[in-house]
Write a protein that binds this DNA or RNA. Structure first.
Lengths: 339, 339
DNA sequence: GGTTACCTTCAAAGCGCTTTCAAATTTCTC
DNA sequence: GAGAAATTTGAAAGCGCTTTGAAGGTAACC
């Protein structure tokens, strides 16, 4: 059933039927009711391909997700971020176009989206320091929103969490407990968020006149195995750290495992604070084993990012939106006074 | 730059330019070369909205992902499955349309995709027993492929792993090691894969004249916390199980944690076998703490599922494809003789 | 040389909608 | 009750491509 058939079955023109269904005001209420009833009865749905061509809008938002080079790892936080964003898209009538490519192919993916008009805007996640995607999208003139930020962040829309403050605060918390040898198990420091977290950690140490020790800092893709390896190395040193600051619950699980294997008890022999993205399948709440954590829901972030992006697509000339969220420090059972 | 402009700048008709770019044979080789050069120079990309309308093909595949009711949990295996499928889609020129909805809204999402023609086919994941989506898609006449299977599986395309055999095999492995009180920490048994795994487990027990004990079987959404809770309960009984068969590495991490907390060592005091989807961020390999596992890569499955679905979209009348993959049993360090 | 076949190109229709512009009808206004 | 204004509907153009059907130009054949 298409518009033409529906219109002729009603004895009306396509124009009127189209207007009735799209809520235009200049339609007689009775006519509209009649049209709506017929459309429902026939289960009529306007053909989205035709509509998109006619309106010039794709009603689609692009997400380009890259997997990291060698390991081909897909960052698991994307699932929850997408769930949050997807909720909003569905509500607002937008489709979500997902492109999963190798890191090197991302530029081509964005260029293609811009040139062939398959999306109205794109979401950028996990920016690196001086990420080339931002300049590219500015050049292409495609509306976009960055989850995270980098460089001179005034010239585009972003939503970020206060990574530096969160990790400074977490480090201070450990210092207050008497820890002084605190290891940092960070994400790849080419990523902007990881660089900020490291700065927060170092600032807190310096403020207490502790010189940051490079040998206590690790940076890599945040898998469980990485957390385990890094912690194992650190814990087997003669002068081992008494506390760990970790960038992801997944890696923190590896760190915890390494501690257990050495007979060390969390919160007594060794302390862990992790950043917690509140992933739905790794809920770090009262029920399970609760890490002390800086916490900010990636899913809520996804939801809000989608809202902002859609607003910006509708009003391309509005001023840039910058939203900085604080992470809360949740004290769990993985921290305690330095031994 | 659109086709009309490109054509007139070349002094050719739209017809010829379109044909030259789409590889039709009736174009003079010199003309084609000229057109291709000009298109490249102008960075011309055909407008996908127009092309889709004209061809009647969406060049898009839909994935509807549901989050489970109350917990709103998004199954983390989707990220890796999507990565595998996305790779193939990109190669074949298909877009991936992702719809993330509450479980109850899935039917509407499929109906909409079928009615408005935004996709050429859909991927169905995680079928429940007698899943209504299958009948729905058959009725809608939309090509689809099921990852997993259920009910009378002859009438549609599917790719599945041999869940029953894998869990029977794993149970036999534990029985051979002398375990007899083996707990099953399963996924929700409304899911077809979980029901099959349970049958495999029970068959293996019965074959050794052990009556399956309901009190040793748990079934729920496979989070870490669930694994931890279930194992904690079981290990605190007077007559505790000596081995665990777990449906997901994520839950197995919770089980392991519960064991550690009670001073029990894996492979000595308690054994764990888990199913391992080979998620990229939870790699259960030699480096990290390796569980004994039935193993099958969800990412490879995604890749193959995409290939099959695209084949079927291109040839709608070909016979149904049924592909059953064996999971391999990888012996790790989490299993040992019964104490 | 005339007919046929082939190669190459093009004009125009069509995909199924939205939207502009105009027309028909009804309601107001004095 | 005539003219103006408001309300409601429709014809047709257009979105940017693909594809059909026709035609111009060459080569091939007898």
């Amino acid at each position: 059933m298409n518009l033409k058939e529906l219109a002729s079955s009603l004895g009306l023109s396509q124009t009127t039927v189209s207007r009735a269904l799209n809520g235009y005001p200049e339609v007689n209420p009775e006519t509209r009711a009649r049209v709506e009833a017929a459309a429902r009865a026939a289960n009529y749905q306007p053909n989205s391909r035709a509509r998109r061509l006619a309106t010039g809008r794709a009603m689609t938002i692009g997400h380009v997700i890259t997997h990291t080079g060698e390991t081909e790892m897909v960052n698991p936080i994307f699932a929850d971020f997408l769930a949050g964003a997807g909720e909003v898209y569905a509500r607002e009538g937008y489709d979500l176009l997902l492109s999963i490519v190798h890191e090197g192919a991302a530029e081509r993916a964005y260029r293609q989206m811009a040139a062939n008009g398959s999306v109205d805007g794109v979401m950028v996640q996990g920016p690196r320091q001086e990420d080339p995607r931002i300049a590219l999208l500015q050049e292409l003139g495609l509306p976009f929103l960055v989850h995270g930020r980098t460089g001179d962040a005034r010239g585009y829309n972003w939503l970020d969490i206060a990574n530096l403050r969160a990790f400074r605060r977490a480090t201070e918390f450990l210092l207050d407990l008497g820890h002084s040898r605190i290891a940092l198990i960070n994400g790849q420091e080419a990523m902007d968020f990881a660089a900020r977290r490291r700065r927060g950690y170092e600032e807190a140490l310096r403020a207490r006149s502790i010189t940051p020790d490079e040998s206590l800092m690790y940076a890599d893709v945040m898998t469980e195995g990485y957390g385990h390896r890094a912690a194992a190395q650190l814990l087997d040193r003669e002068n081992r750290p008494t506390a760990f600051l970790v960038s992801s619950v997944i890696s923190a699980i590896g760190v915890r495992q390494a501690a257990w294997e050495r007979g060390l008890q969390l919160g007594r022999d060794v302390s862990i604070i992790t950043h917690d993205d509140v992933l739905s399948y790794l809920n770090n709440d009262a029920e399970g084993p609760a890490f002390t954590a800086t916490r900010s829901s990636i899913r809520l972030a996804g939801r809000r990012c989608a809202e902002i992006l859609i607003e910006r697509i509708k009003q391309p000339d509005a001023p840039f939106v910058h939203e900085l969220w604080e992470a809360e420090l949740m004290v769990g059972r993985s921290t305690g006074p330095a031994p």
